[in-house]
Amino acid sequence: MKEYKEAFQHWDKDNSGFLEHKEFRAFLLSLGKFNISQVPEESGDAEWDRIMARLDPNSDGKVSFDEFIAFMVEESADAESADQLLEAFRVLSNGQPYVLAADLQRELSPELYEYCIANMSTYDDGPEGALDYSSFANALYGESDL
C-alpha cells in the first residue's frame, strides 16, 4: 500500500490529490503493461476507454486515490479470478459466508481495509460487522454489481 501511495503522489504532479487523466495515462505508460497510445487519439483508444470506464465512471476527468487503489488492487492482486479472491476471503473468514470488519482490519493495510469497508455491502444474516465478500469479489471481476 505504501508503494501505491508513493506512486500516486509521484504522478500527482500538481499535488491536487487527484490524478488528471494525462497524469494517469503517464503512470500507465510507465508500467508498460497496457496497450494505450502515448497521446489520446481523436477516434479513441479502446484500452484507455476500457480502463477509464472502470476507473472514472462519473467522467469527472480525475482519478481519486480511492479509485487508484481500486484499480491497482484489481490489476495487481495475486488473485487472478473472482474464485481465487473468494477462496482467500473464505480462508480469512474461517469458512463463513461473510467476513468480519475486525478480521479485515487485522489482516489488511489501513488503506485497503478502508477500501473494502467502503465497497463491501453488509451481510444481512451475519453478526454485527459482517460483510458480503462474495458480491464484492464478483463486482471486482465484473461478474455482478455490488
Rank of each mutant, 00 (worst) to 15 (best):
M1N: 09
E3C: 05
Y4E: 10
E6T: 06
E6A: 12
A7N: 11
A7P: 01
F8D: 07
D12Y: 01
K13W: 02
G17M: 05
F18L: 04
F18Y: 15
L29T: 07
L29H: 06
L29Y: 03
G32R: 10
G32M: 06
K33H: 11
N35A: 10
I36N: 02
I36H: 02
S37H: 11
S37G: 06
P40V: 02
P40M: 02
E41V: 02
E42H: 04
S43A: 13
G44Y: 01
D49Y: 10
I51P: 05
A53L: 12
P57G: 06
G61H: 04
V63S: 01
S64V: 06
D66A: 09
D66F: 09
E67P: 07
E67Y: 07
F68Y: 07
E75M: 14
E75I: 00
A77E: 00
D78S: 11
A79C: 12
E80P: 03
E80V: 12
A82S: 15
D83V: 05
E87Y: 07
R90T: 10
V91Y: 07
V91Q: 12
L92N: 07
Q96C: 05
D103T: 13
D103F: 04
L104E: 09
Q105H: 13
Q105W: 05
L108I: 06
L112C: 03
L112H: 06
E114L: 06
Y115E: 10
A118T: 14
A118R: 15
A118L: 13
S121A: 10
T122P: 04
T122I: 15
D125P: 06
D125Q: 15
D125L: 10
G126A: 09
P127A: 11
P127Q: 12
E128N: 15
A130I: 07
D132L: 08
Y133E: 09
S134T: 14
S135K: 15
S135H: 12
S135Q: 14
L140P: 13
G142N: 12
G142S: 09
E143A: 11
D145T: 14
L146A: 13
